[in-house]
Design a protein around this nucleic acid. Structure first.
Lengths: 247, 247
DNA sequence: TAGTGGTCTAGACCACAAC
DNA sequence: TTGTGGTCTAGACCACTAA
């Protein structure tokens, strides 16, 4: 557990502290060494330590008290989801304590429908590569995702693609190099909906069941929308749970 | 628009930059002055400028490009909700472009029900002050909230209370001083549900309509749960929309 | 190559809580 | 009073992009 110059120091400090919490070296409810002590022990500046501590406090993992100290949150077990995991369904399922798998249920090239065209700023007749995927938790289907990628942005051969990739990796692998870069941010809406019978079939539900509906648009470095997805989440199995420090 | 020593400098820089974006001095898509220039102009260190810029970039308001510059996000209009506004319903309604009002529809003292007792770590027979409140957007009811506060934690006279307070202000005003401090963080779950007929009545909906269900638990400085609330949101009117920078 | 944002440091002072 | 976290600074070097 050494500090190297390869990765950002704050990330390494973050990983070290997470590991110590995981192994209960810093047990729930206990107080961490002071910022100065940690900085001295790890051989980094206090600012670097503070950066890592601040991030973990923002996620609700640590409780910081001015004039007192920094404590491991005893309700740590109630915080399975980090904000960043909300659109990474594999990680989300893992955090819920299940083994995640992905099944590709459909793959077609077709004209963009109205919501897709609007979100991706496409003209009416432009085509998209549409993927239907089912995420399973311990082989129980829990999330159905309809994704759309503008065909114009893809490399030529789009068959033989992998259905088990996170969006950022999908973009990096199948998108034209010159057109776009990596994903820089995402905007998503959270709604409630009763999906159609086909969706219910994929999720092995009877129709009429209310589900969470997540609409996500991903933007690249040039701030162009490059990926759209509409997902239905069985919130009874996969909990969307967030912790937020008071601002 | 001067920098004073009263408030944290980063907050003041943040406010100044937000104002300049609002007035289109920094128009959507345009590039901001460099960090060094801003630091020089405002008379603060570059670290302070970076703190404010980093926060705004994390909210999706700015796009930062190493080696290039910092830009105002042209999709700024698609980001009405900041993360921190999600559990502040008044602010949430304002961000959606409506005028918010609150109506207190019920106020009783009764034993805690099962979810409340579990979330607030209460014994079976403990009593809570239960509030029912309706949030309206331009006089249209959009959110119904059932709240519960442990009676043991409240000051003696609980009549004549105000129903239009944010949780943090409610706690500050009506809770015993020695028992608890301010709210430090919150944990909330997002679910989909079809509420009962009474809830539908308050929201002027026909039964069977799926709504977003937010379950929130607020913790104080001593890390004790002090406030519980169960809310139903008409997501067709009030959008829960978030921007997140890629991690 | 010049200028940008990204990272890190050492040091200082302040606000606050425990003792 | 002491030690904690909260804030701020000045300066340095690195990684990256555009010209």
């Amino acid at each position: 557990m050494h500090i190297e110059r390869r990765l950002p120091i704050t990330s390494q400090v973050n990983a070290i502290l997470l590991e110590r919490i995981r192994t209960q070296e810093y047990a729930p409810g206990s107080r961490l060494p002071s910022e100065s002590e940690l900085a001295g022990e790890l051989g980094v500046s206090r600012a670097s330590v503070r950066s890592a501590l601040g991030r973990m406090a923002g996620e609700g993992l640590l409780i910081r008290k001015q004039g007192d100290g920094t404590y491991v949150n005893v309700h740590i077990d109630r915080i399975p989801t980090r904000m960043g995991a909300m659109w990474n369904f594999l990680r989300l399922i893992e955090h819920s304590g299940h083994h995640p798998t992905i099944r590709l249920v459909s793959q077609v090239t077709r004209p963009a429908n109205e919501p897709e065209a609007r979100a991706l700023a496409l003209s009416e007749d432009e085509h998209v590569l549409a993927l239907g995927r089912v995420f399973c938790a311990d082989d129980v289907p829990v999330i159905l995702t309809h994704s759309a990628a503008p065909l114009r942005l893809l490399r030529e051969p789009v068959d033989q693609l992998h259905g088990d990739l996170p969006v950022s990796e999908f973009v990096r692998r199948y998108y034209r190099a010159g057109v776009t870069g990596r994903i820089t941010y995402t905007i998503f809406d959270i709604n409630s909906a009763t999906p159609d019978s086909e969706t219910c079939g994929h999720l092995q539900l009877e129709p009429g069941m209310p589900l969470l509906e997540l609409t996500q648009v991903f933007y690249d470095r040039a701030n162009h929308p490059v990926f759209y997805s509409l997902s239905y989440v069985r919130d009874k199995i996969i909990r969307l749970r967030l912790a937020q420090a008071w601002e």
